[in-house]
Nucleic acid binder design. Sequence first.
DNA 1: TCTTTCTGTGAAATTTTCTTCACAAGGAAT
DNA 2: ATTCCTTGTGAAGAAAATTTCACAGAAAGA
Lengths: 216, 216
Amino acid sequence: MKNILIVDDDAELRANLSEILTGKGYRTEEASSGKEAVERAAAQEFDIVLLDLMMPKMSGMDVLSELRKIKPKTKIIMITAFATVDNAVEAIKKGASDYISKPFKIDELLITIRRALEESRFEEGIKRLDMDYTLSSLSNSIRRKIIKLLSMKDGMHLMEIVRELAIDDHTKVVFHLKILKESGIIEQDKEKSYFLTKEGKKTLDCLNILESYLSK
Amino acid sequence: MKNILIVDDDAELRANLSEILTGKGYRTEEASSGKEAVERAAAQEFDIVLLDLMMPKMSGMDVLSELRKIKPKTKIIMITAFATVDNAVEAIKKGASDYISKPFKIDELLITIRRALEESRFEEGIKRLDMDYTLSSLSNSIRRKIIKLLSMKDGMHLMEIVRELAIDDHTKVVFHLKILKESGIIEQDKEKSYFLTKEGKKTLDCLNILESYLSK
DNA sequence: TCTTTCTGTGAAATTTTCTTCACAAGGAAT
DNA sequence: ATTCCTTGTGAAGAAAATTTCACAGAAAGA
């Protein structure tokens, strides 16, 4: 049973949505203001928050920021009567999962909700293990350099990498390549050249995210 | 001197933009198709790519994905004649820096470009050092747990943390707290309670990003 | 063929990280 | 005052990560 918080100042719309979603097997709660939404979300776990952008006092955008801060795992779907590209852009940048505009077909909303839940299902479960592998690979700067190198030039040979890194002892590089291979970040083909696996590319993305994020 | 790649199938628009931007002190290049854009971007570093969404053959959205993959640092501004919220949402989700719609005022574009450059200036320079600290802090799972704990409950005392983590030797926790303190992720107030610094909150965000990212 | 380069292994040495333990000052509670 | 809990410090040891070195087979070039 998934918990959905409906945030809108229009009581009728809340009631409608609530009824429909309850009928579809979701558990719903309502909040009529941004402040109330934040309080409820802080007190209780929601899987999804349906958030109206236009509300008196605390704007939906502020609520979005606040919710993201206190509950980063909760998926937020922005809803608005006056959809503008700018608002949509801002909302997604701030971490909303999706953005739909009134009037919406109920099917459209249901699909959007399912999609968001799918996302969180993934994020939730499966692999907390990967985390350890990935982070311990990333914790070494030589390995980070190797990943970057391979992202720029797929299929490098050992000595190419060694020279590029300007490390004199090639076995040192072999050591790190082995670790990267064991964590599934890189692979080798028959010609012995190294390249990033799918996992490796994800890892690279992570690195980039981290870098850009840390310097903001 | 900043390099801008203008990607649009409309030659006249390209020429116009190019002239204006050159006049403003940017160096520009043009590409008339998605394919050409990707090739050029692969061959040369651009700071900004102005990318038309609607193009024959390879759609702007595909080009966006491709560019993000090969040049994650390049900022991409999507431009489109038929702005829709959906497109904007998709573009930003896929990593575009911004999204503007034709017809746009040239000032608007210039501001958008400056904003994007500002972003990359930040991401570029400043701190590659933080990276090492942060990643080595994150590489240990006890420390990750501490960060998560503190994110849920600011201002915990030593023994609170110790009990929450179910670790019997408190000095072990002290050890990790010290490391976190030294890397500037946490601090203590006069009452000895620990809390996340601003840096620490960023680090937490990183962790969340990584987690959600790794399980996709 | 002979030499050189590339790709690696395995063991030992070193460094770094983490854990454990002995101890102690300060405050609160009895 | 005595006892208990909290918050540490510092040294020592254990474990893990990294580096260095000696060596070797396979492939490539001369």
